[in-house]
Amino acid sequence: MTENTSQNANVVVEHLRAWNPNAIEEVMEFRGETTIVLPRKILRGVAERCREDAALRFDLLTDATCVDRYPHEPRYELNYHLVSIPRKDKIRLKVRLSGADPVVDTLCPVWPGANWLEREIFDLMGIRFTGHPDLRRVLLPDDFEGHPLRKDYPVEGYRDVPMVPGFRKSSV
């Protein structure tokens, strides 16, 4: 799937490595897109660095999304897509979270735009963001049970299916 290109790593990777040698777990290159995999603990620090560093200046958090790799562990992959408008550059930050403990620091203090992006992930995937100012469901009703974008949630939902313990309509 990916190859490690740490030998000819780009400017972002160099800067982050110079700042904190342990900041980067892995660098992936696929179809010209660079992905930096970070440990969960320092996501916030790296995000601040990406935004504030005069050589990086990733001022726009364009998207945040989550992939569920169930049944593999760590199950969740959070992807943050950053854009630097002045430098015309893009990067993807990735954090892996285990199914047992899907919790990560919020990025709202760094980019206020992360607010609804994280709410959407919370709503549909059930990832919790510590320190988030307003972590409520956004697309689904407040009384909705479960997180439908998880892979163990059937495509048809549970609503029209008899709620018998152990019975679960397979998602075709």
């Binding site: 799937m1 990916t2 696929f30 179809r31 897109e33 992905t35 364009t62 998207d63 999304t65 992939v67 790799r69 992807n79 897509h81 893009k90 993807r92």
Partner: peptide, 24 residues
């Protein structure tokens, strides 16, 4: 497709429209 993930953005009339596709 080969396993991997891509994120593509275009300019829609409303702003940046992005699509993230992950393949296994």
């Amino acid at each position: 497709p080969a396993p991997g993930e891509v994120f593509v953005t275009v300019e829609s009339p409303r702003g940046e429209l992005g699509c993230f596709v992950a393949s296994d």
